[in-house]
Simulated assay, not measured.
Amino acid sequence: MKTDEQKNYIYFLRKEGWSYTRISEKVKISRNCVIGICRRRMVTKSLKRGPKCKLNAAYKLRLKRQICNLRDNGAKVNCNKLIKSCNIPVSRFTISRYLKEEGLKYKKIRKTLPLNPLDKAKRCDLAKKWLAENHVWERTMFSDEKWFSIDGPDDWRTYTKKTDFIYRPRHQKKGGGIMVWAMVLPNGLLSYKILNRDFNSAAYLYLLQRTVVPICNLNYVNNFWFQQDNSRIHTAKIVKEWMTVSQFHVISWPARSPDLNIMENVWKMLEDVIYDRSPLTSRDDLTEEIRKAFLLINTNKRDVIINLYKTFRGRLVKVLVNNGNEINK
């Protein structure tokens, strides 16, 4: 392997009109090596493998304009749509190669909750307040509700052979599911309840009185905080009145902020366990898998949940850095 200094010296001698043989005798290397070094210097652009591009400058300009229009309008951008809208006589593979050359990638759009300027400002204000007051997250209980479907998640994926055809059966009119309420404690333990279909504010108040308060008092006496989102059931008049009379400490939670709730991470852990095996066939099977999942998390994953509490203040810092926009949990 020749150094850059040796190569530059060979280039200089060749530019001065020296022959390959004379250069090889001068620098003490073989003539073929000198020829290889000089010829590679002459190649300014390597030829690409594959078919020649069928898109001329006019087609490329037409594609760029159409892509900009679609993205500005929030519309989907794909190869077939570009071919039809731009009236270009090429295959979708040609368009795909062009988009790849332009640095574009076909991605699955992630669904997020819309945050208006007021929501972002509220998120930033609360983050500043919690950080300034050093809120005791180590004594805060996070809660949330989630729907688990018998048919499983839409994006169930696994690695398999290219020749294998895999599928998960589903019911024609959705197989139904179960609504679950759960609460996570700073010691890494989870508590959950399976909710009825007619779950309302009165049932939620009963849940607070008979489940949340006893568990929190058992672990932290009266020195604890409770987190809930701004669902209509949570903010009903009877619930607010009971919280005021009983001095139930509830933190003010910003709207559209599931990314700040530790329970979202816990739901993902539970989903990985519940939907790991073959498809479920009934509500009883789903109920049993939910029970096993909560037992597994409480037994083997407490350290993971405790670490979520330790890093929670970092989430608040990310909110401020992102000016109130959604953060990656």
Rank of each mutant, 00 (worst) to 15 (best):
222 N>M: 14
218 L>W: 02
8 N>P: 06
253 W>V: 07
181 W>M: 06
51 P>H: 12
146 K>N: 08
10 I>K: 01
176 G>L: 14
254 P>K: 00
165 F>V: 04
16 E>C: 12
175 G>M: 03
293 A>C: 05
214 P>R: 15
32 N>I: 15
23 I>T: 08
28 K>G: 10
207 L>C: 05
248 F>D: 04
61 L>Y: 06
296 L>Y: 15
298 N>I: 11
86 C>S: 11
167 Y>S: 15
6 Q>P: 01
177 G>A: 09
53 C>Y: 00
306 I>Y: 01
113 L>C: 10
65 R>N: 12
246 S>P: 04
228 Q>H: 11
14 R>I: 03
114 P>I: 06
66 Q>A: 05
143 S>R: 01
27 V>D: 08
325 N>K: 13
194 I>S: 00
228 Q>L: 03
327 I>L: 08
293 A>F: 10
209 Q>I: 03
266 V>Y: 01
110 R>Q: 02
2 K>H: 08
1 M>Q: 05
18 W>Q: 13
206 Y>Q: 10
233 I>F: 01
319 V>R: 03
165 F>E: 09
154 D>G: 05
108 K>L: 13
147 W>C: 03
144 D>Y: 08
190 L>R: 09
270 L>E: 07
212 V>C: 04
233 I>T: 02
30 S>T: 12
329 K>Y: 11
25 E>I: 04
295 L>Y: 14
298 N>H: 11
207 L>M: 00
172 Q>W: 12
114 P>A: 05
161 K>L: 15
172 Q>N: 14
70 L>P: 02
122 K>H: 11
260 L>E: 09
79 C>G: 14
221 V>Q: 08
198 D>V: 10
159 Y>M: 15
269 M>G: 15
311 T>P: 02
81 K>T: 15
62 R>F: 08
19 S>E: 00
312 F>M: 05
167 Y>H: 14
167 Y>V: 15
38 C>Y: 03
309 Y>P: 15
319 V>K: 05
311 T>N: 04
13 L>F: 00
57 A>Q: 12
269 M>W: 09
325 N>R: 09
64 K>W: 06
186 P>N: 01
60 K>P: 01
197 R>D: 13
178 I>S: 00
286 L>F: 12
116 N>M: 02
64 K>L: 06
151 D>G: 03
248 F>V: 09
101 E>R: 07
20 Y>G: 05
71 R>Q: 08
71 R>V: 02
167 Y>G: 12
224 F>K: 02
137 W>T: 09
327 I>W: 04
31 R>Q: 10
311 T>M: 00
22 R>Q: 00
129 K>T: 10
141 M>G: 03
72 D>T: 14
319 V>F: 02
277 R>D: 10
287 T>V: 05
297 I>R: 09
178 I>E: 00
175 G>H: 07
189 L>Q: 05
21 T>M: 07
145 E>P: 01
283 R>V: 12
58 A>P: 03
70 L>I: 07
86 C>P: 11
310 K>N: 09
203 A>Q: 02
